[in-house]
C-alpha cells in the first residue's frame, strides 16, 4: 500500500518535473536517515518535510529510522555514506551540538563530516513547574533555590539531554543548585511533573502546551527571544531578569561532506521550498514548531556558536557521560 502510494507519487512527480530534471540528480530514491525511533520529533520533521520534497525532486524520498546511542549510530552511518545526495540526515540539537561536546568518542564530527544544509525547525523550551510548587515566577524560584540548595528536583528527558543542559545553564547563570532527575524521554518526565513527584523542568513548548492550558502545569518563563503568542503572559527569561538562557530545540538537515555543488544547490532549494510551503508551515505551527529554513552558511555559523556554548556549560557543570 505504501509502495503503491510512493510509486504513484513518484509517477506524478516524474510526469510534472521530468523535463526540468531530466538529466542528473536525482535519478533514484533519496534516503533520509533519522537516528531516532519513528514518532519522535526528528522523525516527524523528516516525514513532514520529505513528503513535500519528493514533489520537487521528482523521486521518492524514503525515511529510514536508525535509532541508537542518542542518535550517534545513525549520524555515524550518514557520515560514512557516499556524498552523492542520496543519503541525508535529519537530526536534533543533541545529534549536532550536544553529543560532540559530551562524548569522548563519537563516530562522527558534525563540522568535519557533514555538509550542513539547513536548520529546518525550532521550538522554544519553557520552564514549567507543578501547580503546587511554591514559586510562581522565575524570581521566586531563584529565591527558593537559594534558600533550599540541592532540594528542588529538576526533571529532564535524560542525562545529557538538551533540557538537562538547559537546567545546568540556568543554575550557572543564577548561581543556584538543584537535584537533576533524569527520565527515559520527555513523556515520563512530564508525567511525574504533573503528578507532583518532581518539581520543575525545562521542556519543549509543544510537549507541554496542552498541560499548561489545562492547568496541570504552571508556566514560569519561555527560553525564547520573544514571548510566545499562545502564552502572551509568560515572560522570556531575559524579561525575568536572567540573561543568556535562550534555548531552542532544533531539527536540522545535513549530508555527508563533499556534495557536488549542483546537487547541494538542488537539495537546498528543494528543502527551503518544502519548509516554506504554506501547508507544511501550518502543520509545523500546529504542533508548536517554528520553521527556520536557514541557509547552509547560517547553519554553519549557528552550529559553531551552539557547540561552544554547550561546551562551556558541560565543562562548568562538570557534566560527564561515558562512552
Amino acid at each position: 500500500m505504501r509502495a503503491l502510494k510512493l510509486l504513484s507519487a513518484a509517477a506524478i512527480g516524474i510526469a510534472i518535473y521530468a523535463p526540468a530534471f531530466a538529466a542528473g540528480y536525482p535519478e533514484k530514491p533519496v534516503t533520509v536517515i533519522v537516528p531516532f525511533p519513528a514518532g519522535g520529533a526528528s522523525d516527524t520533521t523528516a516525514r513532514m518535510t520529505t513528503q513535500k520534497m519528493q514533489e520537487s525532486l521528482g523521486q521518492p524520498v524514503v525515511v529510514e529510522n536508525k535509532p541508537g546511542a542518542n542518535g550517534s549510530l545513525g549520524a555515524g552511518q550518514v557520515a560514512k555514506a557516499k556524498p552523492d545526495g542520496y543519503t541525508l540526515l535529519v537530526g536534533s540539537i543533541g545529534v549536532y551540538a550536544i553529543n560532540p561536546v559530551l562524548y569522548k568518542s563519537l563516530p562522527y564530527d558534525p563540522i568535519k563530516d557533514f555538509d550542513l544544509l539547513t536548520v529546518a525547525v525550532r521550538t522554544p523550551n519553557v520552564l514549567v513547574a507543578n501547580p503546587n510548587f511554591p514559586a510562581n515566577n522565575v524570581k521566586e524560584l531563584v529565591e527558593y533555590l537559594k534558600k533550599n540548595p540541592e532540594k528542588v528536583t529538576f526533571a529532564s528527558s535524560g542525562a545529557g539531554s538538551s533540557d538537562h543542559l538547559t537546567a545546568a545553564l540556568f543554575w550557572q547563570k543564577t548561581g543556584t543548585t538543584g537535584v537533576h532527575v533524569p527520565y527515559k524521554g520527555g513523556a515520563p518526565a512530564i508525567t511525574d511533573l504533573i503528578g507532583g513527584h518532581a518539581d520543575v523542568s525545562f521542556q519543549n513548548l509543544g510537549a507541554v502546551s496542552n498541560h499548561i492550558k489545562a492547568g496541570k502545569l504552571k508556566l514560569l518563563a519561555v527560553t525564547a527571544d520573544k514571548r510566545n503568542p499562545a502564552f502572551p503572559d509568560a515572560p522570556t527569561m531575559e524579561e525575568a531578569g536572567i540573561e543568556g538562557v535562550e534555548v531552542y530545540s532544533w531539527q536540522a538537515v545535513a549530508a555527508p561532506k563533499g556534495l557536488p555543488a549542483d546537487v547541494k544547490g538542488k537539495l537546498e532549494k528543494s528543502l527551503t521550498a518544502a519548509l516554506n510551503s504554506p501547508d507544511v508551515k501550518g502543520k509545523f505551527s500546529d504542533i508548536g514548531f517554528e520553521v527556520v529554513a536557514s541557509t547552509s552558511g547560517q547553519f554553519s555559523e549557528f552550529l559553531s556558536q551552539e557547540i561552544s556554548r554547550w561546551k562551556t556549560v558541560v565543562e562548568a557543570g562538570k557534566i560527564t557521560a561515558d562512552q
Partner: peptide, 11 residues
C-alpha cells in the same frame, strides 16, 4: 521479498 521489501518497505 514482496511483503517485507516491496509492501512494508523494510530497507
Amino acid at each position: 521479498s514482496l511483503v517485507f521489501v516491496k509492501a512494508l518497505g523494510v530497507p
